[in-house]
Simulated assay, not measured.
Amino acid sequence: MDIRTLGIDDLELICRHREAMFQDAGRSDDVLLPMTENFREWVRPRLLDGSYFGYVILDDGTPVAGIGLMLIDWPPHPEHPWHDKRGYVLNVFVEPDYRKRGLARELMKLAEAEFVARGVCFAVLHATEKGRPLYQGLGWSSTTEMAKTLPL
């Protein structure tokens, strides 16, 4: 298996992985299709300017797993009182035939190392129920974050 960084040529792969990740979490196509369409337009310029970055694992040239990463502006906080950025992990996905082989764990280790290399000491992610045991096993913990969808 090979690992490489994401690039603009991975746009459709990233979109496919994101949609499949949410399908695995039980989301319906009536929500996912417009989300993917809008996500594609959102992520394209970020791939080009490098503000969305990450890794893909390939098996004989075929992408089988990927992870997206971002740095987000965040005011100094008790968890990172001297820093104004957080790492953000998103779109962790492993193709079904490649699961339970440690690929997501490898991607998470790469993500943590990338954040440290970029001077970020605190990172967050939103876990699906399937992903939660992996993240907890790597030392990630739940936070006090809450969410609410607001009407437009």
Rank of each mutant, 00 (worst) to 15 (best):
T128D: 08
R16E: 14
R99L: 01
P96S: 09
V120I: 07
W74L: 14
G7F: 02
P78M: 11
W74G: 12
G131D: 10
R132M: 12
D59W: 03
L90T: 12
E129I: 07
T5Y: 13
L110H: 02
Y55N: 07
A123P: 05
E114Y: 07
G66S: 15
D9H: 15
L32R: 04
R105Y: 03
V120K: 09
G137K: 03
L125R: 04
Y52K: 05
S28G: 13
G66K: 10
E145Y: 11
Y88H: 14
G54F: 08
G54H: 11
R44L: 08
C121I: 11
C121W: 12
G139E: 00
L107W: 00
L48E: 15
A20K: 14
L11C: 09
R27L: 10
H83T: 13
F115H: 05
G7R: 03
Y135H: 05
G131M: 09
E37V: 08
A25E: 12
I57L: 06
P63T: 00
L138K: 01
G119W: 04
R44P: 05
A117E: 11
A20Y: 09
L58I: 02
F93T: 06
V43F: 04
T128H: 08
I67E: 04
G137H: 00
P96C: 03
I72Q: 15
E79R: 12
L150M: 13
H126G: 04
L33N: 04
A127E: 06
I57Y: 01
L103C: 00
Y135Q: 02
R40W: 01
G131Q: 06
P96M: 08
L13V: 01
L48T: 12
P34K: 01
K130Y: 09
D59I: 00
L152K: 15
Y135D: 05
F39A: 07
K130F: 10
F93I: 06
P75E: 13
H83I: 14
P34I: 01
K109M: 05
L150V: 14
C15K: 03
E129K: 13
R99H: 04
R118M: 09
R46T: 10
Q136I: 06
A20C: 13
I57A: 12
F39V: 01
V89C: 08
C15H: 02
V120N: 07
M1E: 00
M108Y: 01
D49F: 03
T144G: 15
M35H: 11
L11N: 07
T36Q: 14
H17M: 11
R18D: 09
R99Q: 09
S141E: 12
D30G: 07
P81W: 10
V92D: 10
G119A: 08
I67V: 10
